[in-house]
Amino acid sequence: MRSVMSNKWVITLYVLPALILILLLIYIPIVLTGYYGLMEWNGIGKMKFIGLANYIELVQDQKFWQSTWHSILLGLFSTASLFGYLLLSLILASKIKGANFLRKIYLIPMLLSSVAIGQLWAKIFDPTNGMINRLLVLLGFENPPLWLADADIVLFALFIPIVWQYAGFYIIIFYAALKNVPEELIEAAKIDGATPIQIALKIRIPLISDVIKVMIILAIVGSLKYFDLIFVLTGGGPNGASEVMASYMYKEAFSKYNFGYGSAIGFGLLIICLVMTWLIQRLLSSKEDVEY
């Protein structure tokens, strides 16, 4: 058996299907997207080669950079929300009463589709009959805000359902990491007189630092690519106030039938995601590994 598994041809045979899938589903589409960005094309007719014109236009496009800034803001807010997720995970991991029930509650948004979540929050944000504005009226606010129609607050209003949608995912990952911390270390710290806050800051969080770093990368890169809930709730409006890179790419390619420029936007989105991932890894890199 060992001789078979050490055979290079056998190893190649096992690895080849995965490599073919990765090539077909990831790398070839990336190359084609960059190639289509060199074309003037409506998605149906004949393509016309125009060189770097789409990419030059992309660099000069203020709407693209505005949507990029909105995506970065979403990434920063998502990263900040990780502290809340981590706090909830620490509470759940501390053997509080009803922890199992709470974990199931937090996972409910993950079971819903983005369209269903969008429709739900559209009703909540409704300026006339929405739950939030009705509550504000009861509290004495005469003119509650138009959450999804006010360009000054729409982006921040969208952060709320996005945080709610992904709470279960991040909480369950943090919770699983915290449960892998050896209980002997926790008990020893308690015997030495450590408080729950000291145990969290000095033992639990340092020992799951690698998981936290991965979650930060996922939160930022995922936010840069975010599309579905924003498209359902606002479509990027009003007047582009909630436009993100993915929604801007969709509009150019599938609404305006400018597939060449839409492909250039998609390729630009890829480059920005790669650069942001590299920067985050550099910022979070540490020479010292915490071991137990």
Rank of each mutant, 00 (worst) to 15 (best):
V4L: 15
M5N: 12
V10I: 15
I11M: 14
I11F: 11
Y14T: 09
Y14L: 14
V15K: 10
L19R: 08
L19W: 08
L19E: 04
I22H: 08
L24C: 13
I30E: 06
L32G: 03
Y35V: 15
E40D: 15
E40A: 12
K48V: 11
G51R: 05
L52W: 08
L52M: 13
I56S: 13
V59P: 01
D61F: 06
F64E: 03
F64L: 09
T68H: 02
S71M: 07
L74W: 13
L74E: 01
G75L: 04
F77I: 14
S78L: 10
L88D: 06
S89M: 07
S89Y: 05
L90D: 11
S94T: 06
N100K: 15
F101D: 05
F101A: 14
K104C: 10
K104S: 15
Y106E: 10
L111I: 14
S113F: 11
V115M: 12
Q119G: 14
G130P: 01
G130N: 06
N133F: 08
L136A: 08
V137W: 10
E142I: 12
N143Q: 15
N143K: 15
N143H: 15
P144E: 07
W147S: 05
L148H: 02
A149S: 14
D150F: 04
I153W: 04
L158E: 04
F159A: 05
P161L: 01
V163R: 02
Q165G: 10
Q165A: 13
Y166E: 09
A167C: 07
A167G: 01
F169V: 04
A176L: 06
A177E: 06
L178C: 08
L178E: 03
N180I: 05
E183Q: 15
A188L: 07
A189Y: 06
A189E: 11
I191G: 11
I191Y: 13
T195N: 00
T195C: 01
I197G: 05
K202F: 07
R204A: 08
D210H: 12
V211Q: 03
V211R: 01
V214S: 03
M215R: 04
A219K: 02
V221P: 01
V221E: 05
G222T: 03
S223H: 07
K225C: 01
Y226M: 05
V232L: 07
V232R: 09
S242F: 05
E243D: 12
V244W: 02
A246D: 05
S247L: 08
M249K: 03
M249H: 07
K256Y: 14
K256Q: 13
F259W: 02
G260E: 00
Y261N: 08
S263P: 03
A264L: 01
L269N: 06
L270Y: 09
I272Q: 05
L274N: 08
V275W: 01
M276K: 00
S285V: 02
S285W: 09
Y292H: 11
